[in-house]
Amino acid sequence: MKMSTEKHDIEQIEQMSSVGDRLPASRRRAPSRIATSGPAGIFSFASTTFILSMFNVNARSVHTPNVVVGMALFTGGLLQFMAGMWAFPKGDVFGATAFSSYGCFWMSYATILIPASGIQAAYSDQQEFNNAVGIYLITWMMVTILFVLPVLRRNMSFVILLSILALAFALLAAGSFTGMANITKAGGIVGIIVAFIAYYIGVSEMLSAEARPVMRLPLGVMYVNDI
């Protein structure tokens, strides 16, 4: 009796698995044509990080970072947030969470720098404002460290990127807490390194998406899920 029941269950599973093949063409679900949003998210992150980091190292004697506001709002912010939203229907939980989170980070950071927001003006004591920014940056350092965990067995490039990004956040936070320009410059230097690693990953993912890429750039895949 038990063997008969198991045989019946197997037959039902086989019938259900073949239902899609018997459906008329008009009722079959077409394969997803949504392109990967990874390169768009990575390039927007890299470019905004590079510009702000150049300002942090006082390149060309620039000491005021407010020119990055537009970039942070629309490229690092809006475009990266959109990349995160498009990663959801692709089933990319990490990409969706990371891109949308860092997109919101850039938009929130830009808001701090906009005088009309009144955020900086609300602090009468400059050191109190610096401490508040330091706490803000430390929070994103912790978020970045947590993002390392899901990619530990997937991709060496992302592990390196996120680890160095966490260091950049830590240095910028320390610079904000202490008011020491050299620490902030060190954070800017690390940020530039982060940007170039991100550019490398973005180019690699774009090449991988091409049917006939001119070359391939390895990302250091460390683990492949068993099928």
Rank of each mutant, 00 (worst) to 15 (best):
T64I: 15
F99S: 00
G91K: 13
A96Y: 06
G91S: 13
M107A: 05
F74H: 07
R60V: 15
V68N: 08
N66P: 01
F94K: 05
G91W: 12
M82L: 14
T64W: 04
T75S: 14
V62T: 11
V93M: 06
P65T: 04
A98V: 05
F105C: 05
F88K: 00
Y109F: 14
A96H: 06
V67L: 11
F94S: 09
T97D: 05
G95K: 06
A83C: 06
F74Y: 12
N66Y: 08
F99Y: 15
S101M: 13
A110Y: 12
G76N: 02
K90E: 10
F88D: 00
Y109M: 12
V62C: 03
G103K: 07
G70H: 14
M107E: 03
C104Q: 05
T97L: 11
D92V: 06
M85E: 01
F99W: 02
F94W: 12
V67M: 13
F74L: 15
Q80M: 06
P65C: 10
V62I: 15
G91C: 10
S108A: 14
L79A: 13
M82W: 05
A83Y: 02
G95H: 03
F105V: 06
V67W: 10
A98Q: 05
S101Q: 09
H63Y: 13
D92Q: 09
H63R: 15
Q80A: 04
T64K: 15
M107D: 04
G77R: 01
G70Y: 07
L73V: 04
P89L: 07
F105R: 03
L78V: 14
V68P: 04
A98N: 03
D92C: 11
T64P: 00
S101H: 09
A96W: 02
A98Y: 13
L73Y: 14
R60N: 13
T97G: 08
W86Y: 15
D92I: 06
T97N: 11
A83D: 07
Y109C: 03
A98G: 07
Y102H: 10
G70D: 07
G91L: 11
Y109N: 10
T75A: 07
M85P: 00
L73P: 03
F105K: 11
P65F: 12
L79T: 06
M71K: 09
G77M: 06
G95L: 14
V68D: 01
S100H: 08
G77D: 03
F99I: 00
Y102I: 10
Y102A: 02
